[in-house]
């Protein structure tokens, strides 16, 4: 256990909606080692972001962790007090958000906003903070950092703002960086630059990264391990090469299948039939069966376990004899 930087066990996060309590995250397990990148993949609303917000305990007031543990360097964050959490946030674990356009406060300069975290956690004086901010801006590849440091967010482009967010997140040398769809709001060339930057930083500072995305292209680019989520649950968890070579879960297969391929000249793209079920109205048994091409009777009645072989975990009855060695690769 000690070799993991972060270990999430049986995490359940519920939201109090107006139609009752819903399980946004319904028993999620994963672990991240030092210097590793884990990608959490899934459709909108599958609980990726809630999982990441649960780690930092930054859930909105209606959200609550009801079960599970989140061990960070051996300490359970779920049980940690709010004041101890503030010492971890932005310092040992920091976060980059999806929307660079709105994630910076419009009324303070970029330098002030990055400096805030530095002064808070590293207790530097004003002059040292400013130097450190300029150094960070340089690190994330912002030109003329001495000038940019005094500018306001609205004076910067989206890509620049995301670089500022990254500079802010890295300013206290965190051990874990959580990036919640960091490139979704950016155009493709800027996306590539930001991913390149994250990879470079990871290699240079040996930071562990949890990257949340719905873009399988991004996953292939940066991930060491991949966690596929569906309706608040982990459906498949393995290393990135295995996932692309031997995807096991019908959902993962569907996802990979729906990527347009360069050698195909079909008019129609492959899709996964149906839609994600409403969190208020989950099907009994396996949550994916209404959309699954291999659904059997047992899928409708019982919930599958996470079956494991050779560090490849999958939640599907097709693989229930997995542990016995009889591998049946589905279709």
């Amino acid at each position: 256990m000690d070799e993991y930087l972060l270990e999430v066990r049986g995490l359940k996060t519920h939201f109090l909606g107006n139609k009752g309590e819903i399980a946004a995250v319904d028993g999620v397990d994963f672990a991240v080692k030092k210097g590793e990148t884990l990608c959490i993949v899934g459709e909108s609303g599958c609980g990726k972001s809630v999982t990441s917000m649960s780690i930092l305990k930054l859930l909105p007031p209606e959200g609550k962790i009801v079960e599970g543990n989140i061990f960070f360097k051996g300490n359970d964050l779920v049980k940690m007090s709010e004041s101890n959490m503030t010492a971890i946030r932005g310092n040992e674990i920091s976060m980059i958000f999806q929307e660079p356009m709105t994630s910076l406060n419009p009324v303070y300069t970029v330098g002030k906003q990055i400096g805030e975290a530095i002064r808070l956690h590293q207790h530097l004086d004003k002059k040292q903070t400013r130097e450190k901010v300029i150094e960070m801006l340089k690190l994330v590849g912002i030109p003329a950092p001495e000038k940019r440091v005094d500018e306001y967010p609205h004076e910067l482009s989206g890509g620049m703002r995301q670089r500022v967010m990254i500079a802010m997140a890295l300013s206290c040398n965190p051990e874990l960086l959580i990036a919640d769809e960091p490139t979704t709001a950016l155009d493709v060339t800027i996306q590539a630059q930001i991913l390149e930057l994250l990879k470079e930083i990871k290699n240079r500072l040996n930071t562990s990264i949890i990257m949340i995305t719905h873009d399988l292209g991004v996953v292939a680019e940066v991930a060491d391990y991949v966690l596929v989520m569906y309706a608040g649950e982990v459906v498949e968890y393995c290393d990135v090469k295995t996932l692309y070579k031997k995807p096991l879960h019908p959902y993962t297969q569907g996802l990979l299948n729906s990527l347009p391929k360069i050698e195909e000249t079909k008019e129609m793209l492959n899709i996964i039939e149906g839609t994600v079920p409403s969190l208020y109205d989950m099907p009994s048994g396996c949550k994916f069966w209404p959309r699954c091409p291999y659904a059997q009777d047992v899928c409708k009645k019982e919930r599958p376990k996470l079956y494991e072989k050779d560090n490849h975990k999958v939640k599907c009855f097709l693989y229930r004899d997995f542990e016995k060695g009889e591998i049946n690769y589905g279709a």
Binding site: L56, M95, F97, S103, P106, A117, L120
Partner: peptide, 26 residues
């Protein structure tokens, strides 16, 4: 509800500081 308030919390600022510096001013 703004994203930058979440950013401020994610930095590790105390709730009081988040409210006065980031919320009230705006």
């Amino acid at each position: 509800k703004e994203d930058y308030v979440r950013t401020a919390r994610a930095k590790g600022l105390k709730e009081r500081v988040v409210i006065i510096k980031h919320v009230l001013r705006n």
